[in-house]
Design a protein around this nucleic acid. Structure first.
Lengths: 190, 190
DNA sequence: CTTCTAATTAGATGTATATCTAAATAGGAG
DNA sequence: CTCCTATTTAGATATACATCTAATTAGAAG
């Protein structure tokens, strides 16, 4: 499971981890209701109910129908059923931690090769070197342009040989250069 | 579905609505881990992990084995499987709101019969009168003893005829009397 | 007994968010 | 256009809780 699938599942739990929202789903399960009706039944103000409905709508658990300026909400069954299907299989749970060990290993590489905020050596192993390079790239702001001198200055804060690290970041596609202007590429979506 | 079943389900969602805890379950799904291992893998301090494990244990999702000072936690499959079974059936969702309409009706009875903090009349209908009586009983502290005069004073704050309301509370088993001492009975578990 | 290590408990802090009031939006009726 | 009603948006407040540090507990080894 990729990290953003975990995030989706997490968002789902967060949304359902609220008493009023569970009750709203319960009330909608027997038919549509207006915001005002829900507010009266739950003893809440309309803005509060509106807020909850917006969250449920984000997850595609409810849908709206307007009639005048009244809005009738109703349950969207498919949303719940889809999640229900394969939520708690053991493989699914196992996959929640897929990235965790890899991330722990990367943190270890970083602490092993850094000391007092400076890089001790450039790792010889490709995988470890990439971890260092990705960290270094993360020090550059996305969307900002840097001169070669700015790039070098930033690198030299952690390691004297800026030329090597700069070249490797370019090779790895972490930094991009055109006419002596450098900029960081956005990391692949997490 | 009774209200405390809703509360159990809610506790379940709340517990799972947290990224670290999902990851812990993921890590444990492949075998047991010590608190320290989990902390290192998740980049958290031991107390934080301990806190999460305690929450998971409350819901019977994990179990512990001690070995010297070290405690190895592992997943308790049955806990997850049990919940998984009938979580999102439509009847289940519908039942989340079982009490909501009844509660809304009771609130309406109260607002209908009260004005400026005083009872306008004693409702003639049995069901409505019971709502008033239960509310009145709720004004008494559980575990405290009251003299008859204290009881009357408290009732008269909302209605002049204290004798009738006092007698009816006794009849309904809301208030108990012995040798002119009164006390409130604990409401049936919510 | 003292020391070391692993974990938990206590207490403090910061962040997320449920709820509210007030203001803005928008449909329908006169 | 003005008024009324239903809802949403904005902004403020208060509560819940994830996380940390510091202190405590408890096993194991010298």
């Amino acid at each position: 499971m990729s990290d953003d699938q975990l995030q989706i599942l997490l968002a789902f739990f967060k949304t359902l981890a609220e008493e009023s929202r569970l009750k709203i789903l319960g009330l909608l399960s027997t038919g549509e209701r207006s915001v005002g009706e829900l507010a009266a039944l739950l003893d809440l103000k309309e803005p509060t109910v509106s807020h909850h409905l917006a969250k449920l709508k984000e997850l595609d658990l409810v849908e709206v129908r307007a009639e005048g300026n009244t809005r009738f909400y109703q349950l969207k069954r498919q949303g719940l059923e889809a999640v229900n299907k394969q939520l708690f299989s053991l493989e699914m749970i196992a996959s929640w931690a897929d990235d965790v060990e890899a991330e722990a290993w990367e943190r270890k590489v970083l602490t092993d090769f850094f000391e007092n905020g400076r890089l001790k050596d450039i790792p010889a192993q490709r995988k470890k070197r990439d971890v260092i390079l990705r960290w270094l790239a993360s020090q550059f702001e996305v969307g900002r342009e840097y001169t070669e001198m700015e790039v070098n200055d930033l690198i030299r804060k952690i390691y004297p040989d800026s030329a090597t690290l700069r070249r490797e970041m370019i090779e790895q596609g972490l930094l991009k250069r055109e006419r002596n202007i450098y900029w960081r590429l956005a990391p692949p979506q997490a």
